[in-house]
Amino acid sequence: MRLKFILSAIVLCCASTLFAQNPADSAFSKIYVSIEGGEMYPFGDLIDAVENSFYGGVGFRYSYWDDFDGFVNFNYAYVKVRPEGIPYPGVHQFVGRLGLDWHWKYVKPLAIGAGFTCNWARADYDGEDDYLKGRGGMLLDNETEFGWFARINMPFLYYRSFTIGFNALWEQIWTLPERSNTLTIGVYVERRVW
């Protein structure tokens, strides 16, 4: 109850949303929070750049229309770099995602989703040089890049208000000189708030 109160105060600033009479009204009629963990796998060129990395994060999912959910995820990963000669072992990566899940009736309980992603990265470096021109130098300062993703959300275990499921997410970040592609696989535990 208290969690419900806090969430409604923070996210909605009001909590009078329980009846879905027209499509727009089903928004926030159901709300879920989750924790998630898993591994991120680089694809293509990126395999030479970084290692597979574990990540952890939190999520928030809400009904948007009857057959669509909206979701917001925040993840953190410590991403180790592969090449020699980089003056730091890894990079702190924060990822925020905003997307929609579609509960297509033919593939239920599977949901198919897509959305935009924002990747914020900063090298794990506390040396004296404040700007390095060569490889890895840009990451000494904050680097931000956007991208998009498609995902499959597959819940497989239900217990009371809890759900456990898999997320498989293919993501493309709009970096230069090449786009960066990753695959992320994770397990989540989700609790329905209302």
């Binding site: 060129d45 592969r82 840009m138 990451l139 680097e143 931000t144 956007f146 970096t175 090449e178």
Partner: peptide, 25 residues
């Protein structure tokens, strides 16, 4: 918040030459 697309993120550690300039938010 927003950004010009084309920051390198991890491409940074594998891009030796023709490095793009910084993209700004």
């Amino acid at each position: 918040t927003g950004n010009e697309l084309g920051d390198m993120i991890y491409q940074d550690v594998i891009t030796e030459t023709d490095r793009p300039t910084n993209r700004t938010p």
